[in-house]
Design a protein around this nucleic acid. Structure first.
Length: 838
RNA sequence: GCCCGGGUGGCGGAAUGGCAGACGCUGAGGACUUAAAAUCCUCCGGGGAUUUUUCCUCAUGUGGGUUCGACUCCCACCCCGGGCACCA
């Protein structure tokens, strides 16, 4: 630590106050309906090794909020726990030949120590760890409730498969656009396997509609991202009859643009479409089909890869009949059409959809314009390189009886017509899919289901929960999933008939753990249920949830889904888990997010070792406003360290002279000029800092204001000469209180130095004195034609006429007015005068 | 590719329709000191004029627009970041 010749010793102070807080149980709270509650929560961390700056930033913001709310008199719940299941523990276990539990617990211990070191005000009695049976038992319990209600089901679904590892890969393990992370020469294949899903789509409408309830409390962009993710649109399903293939079912396509159906020049099927074998039977395309289809199947399952890969197609040799025009159009297979989405078949309208255009250009299929722009150049089919898809500014052409209609009108009419004729109908389409929760991994919650030869799939009864993970798995990262290769886990008896049965060997996605953990905090040791409803009713909804923008969609959407399911189970009454959400920006290094794989992680504890927790906390808050990304640089932390030393020396110097002096109402009328300057500055600062804490959370500018205040006090030194002790006391106490939420250890120490024995944790947030904030005189900038030409001084509240008179008399401004007449005057009292001259 | 953000001095950032660059870092100068560190004080966007005091002008990714007035609002473009359903 740099020696600044000061007595400020953060290591000593921080240890001292952390001990006192713990002894006084300052951060522990209980549900108490007679008190107004405040539930502030930061997203629980995955304990991945060391606490890095992203965590540190998240928890500092949350801690400031928790401490401010305590000072405001709320009964604050501020818990912390561990998202302890997941892939990295399993990878580490494979690599180091340890048990995932060992690795995880070691990391948790390290994380916990680091968090305690920073003085975050958690109620540690509520700590949870999602990998403990007492927690994951309730994941299983919820799963069974969803199974009973048809919200959990199995279906075939595609996974990434490495033929060398003979195992399922996570998307993260697919690298370089489709290769295995451990075998970089091996292309990942996609395989279909039977997997468990939760029916998020059953709540699609509610998930969308209830976003309205979150307006004002959640960032607009998060609401927007969720809305787009759910992706509700009005579309239609239309059946195309297959020509010349006996017994072939019609192909049902899904489209949001039925109005463009006269422009369809092909029908394109997903490579896995069930009708495909029948179409290819006896077709000239038969010969080349197998190889091509196999290649299409080999693609990664990542959306981003699907969206950017080269479009590949295969002509089936068959034709379909457009039910509107009667036209025969070719049936193709396309690698960009997904079986999982819609009906697994689309109609290609190249003139009005970019992907279709690219596909048709590649394979020489015709382009036909059926919507002309209302304004501008008409479209030329042969030359189009960009599809015209702006349906708000077009009218239909080449569309038989629908010519001249707007796309909106045509969509409605054509859907009705299709329905009347029985070959189609209007349909609401969601982009949202059901949530695939199956993982072929060890380190997760076992899915509580068994398969019996006689009774088929049987749910594990509640009384047999939890289904425990086997203690000694064989973890190799190769071959079948770890649970499947553990006979003592797999082999069991059927709960119904008692005969031999096999356990389900998939574990649950870790997003299950994080979807409801915040309810468990209310009642962390309940062994009768996930939590007590009365306790949840008191604490919920979360008043302020704080976490990374990176969780804007998945975690928050799954949590919202889980909340609605729990409501329908009768556990709670509210619709949404978090009333307010704050998304902090990322901490970056070298322009990208910190991550272990990039090797650019900056540990938070080093900072506390060097400068103390308070300097670290302050600097994290000062470096940028919390919602913005922050490029990490340690160079300027010295400034925060110097500032805290400045404050410490200031209070140290004057504490003796003010101790025991009554502070209370200060008579402004008898105050000296220097006293007035100080009192005005401190109350103005308090007003703005209060606003920043309450509304904008721009802690960086709040700190800047407090720094400015400190500079002003320094310039008034020596204070004891012209400033009465009670004024000095008032100024220093307010300074201390304003810092308290951000640098709590230092503030406690200063508070004690100023003569308070009770502990600052009992103090309230101070109120500013409006009368003391008032300025006597202001400087008003004067513009001529919008350009700054000078400034005039005037008493607060001076009228426009008077200010204009002064401006005209001002030697700087007058030349710009000479010989011209004022045609307009814009006057903002105490702020600005703009004279428009001609 | 799709969805969502961001772009202001050497650097982090302030100003959300009203004096662009608060506050801090870095740098320069001064005071204190035998000296250094620490501390305290002053200066610090570019160009030009006046060289004491100021004034003019350019400047908030690029190009347009709205307005008395735009970092702020609108349109188009460029660049950077995040998410894209098995990382969490």
């Amino acid at each position: 630590m740099p020696d600044l010749g000061s007595a400020y010793d953060p290591q000593k102070i921080e240890e001292k106050w952390q001990k006192r807080w713990a002894e006084a149980r300052v951060f522990e709270s209980e549900a108490d309906p007679s008190k107004s509650k405040y539930y502030v929560l930061e997203m629980l961390p995955y304990p991945s090794g060391t606490l890095h700056m992203g965590h540190m930033r998240n928890y500092t913001i949350g801690d400031v909020v928790a401490r401010v709310k305590r000072m405001r008199g709320f009964n604050v719940m501020h818990p912390m726990g561990w998202d302890a299941f997941g892939l990295p523990a399993e990878n580490a276990a494979i690599k180091n030949n340890t048990h995932p539990r060992e690795w995880t617990n070691k990391n948790i211990a390290e994380f916990q120590r680091a968090l305690r070191r920073f003085g975050f005000s958690y109620d540690w009695r509520r700590e949870i760890s999602t990998c403990e049976p007492e927690y994951y038992r309730w994941n299983q319990w919820f799963f069974l409730r969803m199974l009973e209600r048809g919200l959990a089901y199995r279906k075939k679904s595609r996974v990434n498969w490495c033929p060398k590892c003979c195992t399922v890969l996570a998307n993260e393990q697919v690298v370089n656009g489709g290769y295995c992370w451990r075998h970089e020469d091996t292309l990942v294949e996609s395989r279909e396997i039977e997997q468990w899903f939760l029916k998020t789509t059953a709540y699609a409408d509610q998930l969308l509609d209830d976003l309205k309830q979150l307006e004002g409390g959640w960032p607009e962009r998060v609401i927007l991202m969720q809305r787009n993710w759910i992706g509700k649109s009005q579309g239609a399903k239309v059946k195309f009859v297959v020509a010349d293939v006996a017994g072939a079912e019609p192909i049902e396509v899904l489209t949001t643009r039925i109005d463009t159906i006269y422009g369809a020049t092909a029908v394109i099927l997903a490579p896995g479409h069930p009708l495909l074998p029948k179409l290819l039977e006896g077709s000239p395309a038969r010969a080349e089909a197998d190889a091509k289809l196999a290649k299409m199947h080999q693609a990664s399952v990542k959306t981003e890869d699907l969206a950017t890969m080269e479009k590949e197609g295969l002509f089936t040799g068959r034709y379909a009949v457009n039910p509107f025009s009667g036209e025969k159009i070719p049936i193709w297979v396309g690698n960009f059409v997904l079986m999982e989405y819609g009906t697994g078949a689309i109609m290609a309208v190249p003139a009005h959809d970019q992907r279709d255009l690219e596909f048709c250009r590649k394979y020489g299929l015709p382009v036909r314009v059926v919507v002309e722009p209302l304004e501008g150049e008409p479209l030329i089919e042969e030359k189009m390189t960009a599809a015209f898809d702006e349906h708000h500014q077009g009218k239909l052409v080449n569309s038989g009886p629908y010519n001249g209609l707007s796309p909106e009108q045509a969509i409605a009419k054509m859907a009705t017509f299709a329905e009347q004729k029985g070959f189609g109908r209007a349909e609401t389409i969601f982009r949202l899919k059901d949530w695939g929760i199956s993982r072929q991994r060890y380190w997760g919650t076992p899915i509580p289901v068994v398969y019996c030869l006689k009774d088929g799939m049987v749910a594990v009864p509640d009384k047999d929960l939890p289904v425990l993970l086997p203690p000694n798995p064989k973890l190799t990262g190769m071959g079948e999933s770890p649970l499947a290769s553990t006979p003592e886990f797999v082999n069991t008896t059927c709960p119904k008939c008692g005969g031999p049965a096999r356990r389900e060997t998939d574990t649950m996605d870790t997003f299950v753990d994080s979807s409801w953990y915040f309810y468990r905090y209310c009642d962390p040791h309940n062994d009768k249920g996930p939590y007590d409803s009365a306790k949840a009713a008191y604490w919920f909804p979360i008043d302020q949830y704080i976490g990374g923008i990176t969780h804007a969609i998945l975690h928050l959407l799954y949590s919202r889904f889980w909340c609605k399911v729990m409501r329908d189970l009768g556990l709670i009454k509210h619709n949404e888990p978090a009333a307010r959400l704050f998304t902090q920006g990322m901490v970056q290094k070298g322009g990208v997010a910190m991550s272990k794989s990039r090797g650019n992680v900056v540990g938070a504890e080093d900072m506390a070792q060097k400068y103390g927790a308070d300097t670290g906390r302050l600097y994290t808050l000062f470096a940028a406003p919390p919602e913005k990304d922050l490029e990490w640089s340690e160079e300027s932390i010295e400034g925060s360290w110097r500032f805290l030393n400045r404050v410490y020396r200031l209070v140290e110097r004057h504490a003796g002279g003010v101790r025991g002096q009554k502070n209370g109402s200060i008579d402004a009328a008898t105050a000296t000029a220097r006293e007035k300057t100080l009192l005005r500055k401190v109350h103005q600062t308090l007003r703005r800092v209060t606003q920043d804490f309450e509304t904008r959370w721009h802690f960086n500018s709040a700190i800047a204001l407090i720094m400015e205040l400190t500079n002003v006090i320094y310039l008034q030194e020596p204070l004891e000469k012209a400033v009465r002790p009670e004024v000095r006391g008032e100024v220093l106490e307010l300074l201390t209180l304003m810092l308290a939420p951000m640098t709590p250890h230092l503030a406690e120490e200063l508070w004690e130095m100023l003569g308070h024995t009770g502990g600052l944790w009992k103090a309230s947030w101070p109120a500013f004195d409006e009368a003391l904030t008032r300025e006597d005189e202001v400087e008003i900038p004067v513009q001529v034609n919008g350009r700054l030409r000078g400034r005039v001084k005037a008493a607060v509240g001076t009228g426009g006429d008077e200010v204009e008179k002064q401006a005209q008399a001002d030697s700087m401004i007058a030349p710009h007015l000479a010989g011209k007449s004022i045609v307009k005057r814009i006057f903002v009292p105490d702020k600005l005068l703009n004279l428009v001259v001609a």
